[in-house]
């Protein structure tokens, strides 16, 4: 439960610091990657809701595979795609825990589609943070179900041909059709305003769980500078100019009681 502590000199006021729920471990993400921002937002939300001692994270397989290192909360490592099933088991066994999964688009929307859809449809009372970076980051930039038409990846070197490999999978739109979920929203973190909006969404998704409302999913349209072979600035711009065309931001489902 260590914390980075820097001495604050006399007369200075600390206005910004590391969230308590975030550990000292260094991030393993590439420069410019949105995973880091999203990870911090989750820690801030956990702190603000005072749920650190009840929170259990489910780490995915993907670039966030080391997620368990980054938080001062209990964690379980799930098999690739199985986070929603693991979270189901955890939450059903211990309903007092605040359980969240954190999953990439390969994890959640390809290999784990079935587990995700059915957890959502059952209205499982946990929180899903879904990072849609339109690519498989960890394994070296292969095509994801969310890869944009024409987008080049190492497994569609000529660009994604929708005739051969289909269109970007709109998971949030799909899930929003179901009766089970209470909150499905799509957010982004490419600028300060959107970071604040994403934070609000994450807070809401955790609060829903704490209030026993049911399944909440926050999709975040993110970048992957390394595998897009772009600078962080260019990758950020890609999100705004390209990705959001297919994945428009906003709430897709908000079930008020």
């Amino acid at each position: 439960m260590s914390q980075l502590s820097t001495q604050i000199p006399e007369g200075y006021v600390k206005v910004f610091s590391r969230p308590r729920s975030l550990s000292d471990a260094k991030y393993t993400y590439c420069p410019g990657c949105h995973h880091g921002i999203i990870g911090r937002l989750i820690a801030e939300a956990i702190d603000e809701l005072g749920i650190q001692e009840r929170a259990v994270g489910v780490a995915p397989v993907g670039c966030a595979v080391f997620l368990f290192r980054f938080y001062n909360v209990d964690f379980v490592q799930a098999a690739h795609g199985r986070a929603c099933a693991v979270a189901t088991g955890l939450k059903r066994a211990s309903p007092n825990l605040i359980v969240f999964t954190y999953q990439g688009d390969g994890d959640l929307a390809a290999i784990g589609t079935a587990e995700t859809v059915h957890a959502a449809n059952r209205g499982e009372n946990f929180t899903v943070i879904f990072v849609n970076n339109q690519i498989y980051g960890m394994t070296g930039g292969e095509m994801a179900p969310t890869t944009l038409p024409g987008q080049r990846t190492v497994t569609c070197p000529e660009g994604r041909d929708v005739k051969l490999t289909g269109h970007p999978l709109k998971v949030s739109e799909m899930l929003a059709q179901l009766d089970g979920p209470v909150y499905i929203t799509r957010q982004a973190v490419y600028d300060a305003r959107h970071i604040q909006m994403a934070k609000k969404a994450i807070l809401k998704a955790f609060r829903n769980q704490a209030e026993g409302k049911g399944f909440s999913l926050v999709e975040i349209v993110a970048d992957c500078p390394t595998n897009f072979q772009m600078s962080p600035v260019e990758a950020n711009r890609w999100v705004v100019e390209k990705a959001l065309q297919y994945f428009p931001l906003g709430d897709l489902k908000v079930k008020e009681d």
């Binding site: 379980v76 199985r82 099933a85 979270a87 088991g89 955890l90 939450k91 059903r92 066994a93 825990l97």
Partner: peptide, 18 residues
């Protein structure tokens, strides 16, 4: 569960909860 794959992973989650 929706499949045996999900069932065993639910078991994994519940077992992790102790």
């Amino acid at each position: 569960a929706e499949s045996e794959v999900a069932a065993i992973n639910m078991v994994y989650g519940a077992a992790a909860a102790g």
